[in-house]
Design a protein around this nucleic acid. Structure first.
Lengths: 123, 123
DNA sequence: GCACTCATACGATAGGCGTCGTAGTACGGC
DNA sequence: GCCGTACTACGACGCCTATCGTATGAGTGC
């Protein structure tokens, strides 16, 4: 990054990432973000954790690069928030924003995912 | 249809279309089906109509072919049901199936779509 | 300072999807 | 029987996306 000489304090765990504002989150985008099995799994894990999770804390059947890609999709579509903390990147659901925009939607999806997992698991 | 001599009553509105069984409907597929603005519009219109709608009864900003494509996606992913009635094809939401599989999900999505429409409309 | 780890960026690839136009098929009415 | 209407099938096009491997940057600990 040759041109970035303007921010000398870019370190100390504050490499910041772009997130859409609450008002810019679109339903179709959120649904699209949730429509991938891998991402659905990520969201379920984050919801279950209730707190923040390291990227590597979620076991996924894809490579590291692909994992990064999915996290980015979720972030850019307003589903999760990410921030750096030292060497790790913590991820969390944007529950409050999503609930404000689409009340009940996320819980419905999470519940549906659980139900389906149970159904498919024991059949 | 040269080989179809087995069903003498194939007319009278019974060209039948393939629908997935309730047990074969997957959450990710449903979300994917709903993740397109055009399809979201179709689903909202069908939900508002409460009954069955002709394909052409829903105004869409796409060509006829594309329209057919979107209806097919919705049907093959288990979101709507379609059946021929004479020259027209009637469409209806598979509310009961979806509600049984993913309780509250569809209503959540529909409500979210309404809220967003209101928000975007008057801003 | 150096090595290690975490995560990213970039390039490449293959497949899917949304879009359209055109040609074709099924029904119903004249 | 013929035509108009409603929808479909098929092929094409461009874009987006999921996937990967490799190279790179940021931070931690020795």
């Amino acid at each position: 990054m040759p041109t970035d000489t303007t921010s000398p304090r870019a370190s100390s765990g504050s490499r910041s990432l772009e997130h859409p504002a609450r008002a810019d989150i679109r339903l179709a985008d959120v649904l699209h973000a949730l429509a991938d099995p891998v991402r659905l799994r990520i969201v379920c894990a984050l919801a279950a954790a209730e707190g923040e999770l390291n990227c590597a804390d979620i076991e996924l059947p894809v490579s590291k690069s692909t994992c990064t890609h999915h996290f980015r999709v979720l972030r850019e579509h307003g589903v999760i928030q990410q921030l750096y903390r030292g060497t790790a990147k913590m991820n969390g659901l944007r529950r409050a924003d999503l609930e404000a925009l689409f009340p009940g939607l996320i819980d419905g999806v999470l519940r549906a995912a659980e139900l389906q997992a149970g159904r498919l698991g024991q059949e």
